[in-house]
Amino acid sequence: MSLLTVSGSPHVHDKDNVTRIMRIVILAMLPAFLMSAWMFGMGAVKVFAVSIAACILFEWLIQKFLLKGKSTIGDYSAIVTGMLLAFNVPSNLPIWILIIGALIAIGIGKMSFGGLGKNPFNPALVGRVFLLISWPVQMTSWPKPLGIASPLTDVITGPTPLGILKESGNVVDAMGNPAMPDYVQMFTGQMAGSVGEISAIALLIGVAILLLTRVITWHIPVSMILGAVLFSGALWMVDPTMFVDPIFHLLTGGMLLGAFFMATDMVSSPMTKWGMLIFGFMIGVLTILIRTFGAYPEGVSFAILIMNAFVPLLNKIKPKRFGEEVKNG
């Protein structure tokens, strides 16, 4: 008879593991990807493929030649980072910029801290913000959604709704039509923007998958949206002519993408329920703050990164211990 195994209890394990979580996250992002391919055409597919390939390649290279450890690309986390990075850039971004973004995301955002689980910031956002600051023109020239047959090059670009808002006026496009899409267009994704952020409906399908499979809990998305809605709502109530309504904030830019896929990143979000609620709420508030009063039209990425930095502090919030305070009867 071969040897028995001896180990400490427990001897059974939940079926859930990191690889399964990553696979589900990938699955949940697919609707948004399909939607953007539908809107932006091959440009989106190209950005997507390049980003994922670059992230996997860099993780493999760094693990093999710098950290000299076992390959970690099997845990799918590089693919998730690649997808998230692609979601956060315009579909006409030059390939070389995107590859630099992937290098920053994986190299600095993730592997420099020791790989999956050790990074304090969301790697994809580190890459994204690096690109936004370094190549602001390329990162903010958004192609107009022209459908699946959009040309790969020489696309017509236009501002995002938030950009239009920043210019504070009824911008008209080259054809003289009002540039601002209506809410239905925003909801389905017929607006300019980053690859993954445009379609609210696709993102909602994605988050439903995440919630149903219990990969994430409701705390962060709900509290983030709540924070954004309450803060922007308060501003709007004060002066509706100066500030836009909360629904606009919700449907535009990366608000939903951030709330569902980026703020909920396990590694860079707090551990306890109360920590998560404060974390999400503050991201929502900061986003609106940056959008309304900051220099950039969009603030989700910055808001999430800022709150990522507060996570160690938020982790000081302890869960209630059993038997800590005695309330009997």
């Binding site: 979580i21 396990m266 306890t272 869960p319 211990r321 059993f322």
Partner: peptide, 21 residues
């Protein structure tokens, strides 16, 4: 189960019946 780095998901905290971390 295969061992990975801790991904700080906080599930252990959620399931701990004694409210520990």
């Amino acid at each position: 189960a295969t061992e990975y780095n801790c991904v700080r998901c906080g599930r252990c905290t959620t399931v701990c019946p004694m409210g520990l971390e």
